[in-house]
Amino acid sequence: MGKPVAFSEVTSADAERAQKFYAELFDWKVDADPAMGGYALVDTGDGIGGGIGPAAAPGEAGVKIYMRVGDLDGYLDRAEGLGGKRLVPPTDLPGDFGRFAIFTDPDGNAVGLWA
């Protein structure tokens, strides 16, 4: 069985506007946390979590999916072997949310891994 999509993320130059837009459009519960720089966790109602937050730099706004995997380094190595590039090494998330990493596919699309 393949690895499931476990999380989706929208980043925006105007995160508050994006949070309101997606909450109203899809009836998602969006809970912004000032302690996380205004990043909001999203409850889509279907069991797949999400987040909407500020883009880290100009031009970095977009949509990203995260696959649930057991071995971040192993999947980053596989991605590189298939022509991808590491962007963010395995990194701890706050609280009990686990760890994540990000790579790009051969076309430059950013994809997240979550363990």
Rank of each mutant, 00 (worst) to 15 (best):
A15N: 09
Q19A: 10
D43G: 05
E80K: 15
I65K: 09
G74P: 08
R78A: 10
E16Q: 11
F100Y: 14
A101M: 03
L72Q: 06
G2E: 08
V42P: 00
G95P: 14
A23G: 15
G70A: 06
P4E: 08
A110E: 15
L76I: 14
A101H: 00
A57D: 14
Y22C: 13
A15V: 06
R86P: 07
S8M: 10
K3N: 13
A55P: 00
L72C: 05
G47E: 02
N109W: 09
T91M: 01
G2R: 11
A18F: 11
F97G: 02
A55W: 01
A79T: 08
R68G: 07
R99D: 06
D96P: 15
P90L: 02
G50S: 01
K3R: 14
V30W: 03
M1W: 07
P106C: 04
A13V: 10
W114H: 15
D27G: 15
I52H: 12
G51Y: 01
W114I: 15
V63T: 09
G84Q: 01
D14T: 02
P34M: 01
N109T: 15
T44D: 10
I102M: 06
Q19E: 06
L76A: 02
A79Q: 03
V69Q: 09
D46T: 11
F103M: 04
V5W: 00
Y39S: 14
F26C: 12
P4D: 09
F100L: 11
W28S: 02
G37N: 02
Y22E: 12
D43L: 13
G47A: 06
R99N: 05
D77S: 13
A40G: 05
I65H: 11
W114C: 11
G37T: 00
L87I: 14
I102P: 03
D107N: 10
A115F: 04
A56V: 13
L41F: 12
R86M: 10
E60T: 14
A15W: 12
A35E: 15
G45H: 04
L82Y: 13
A55S: 07
P34F: 01
E16Y: 05
G62C: 05
D31Y: 09
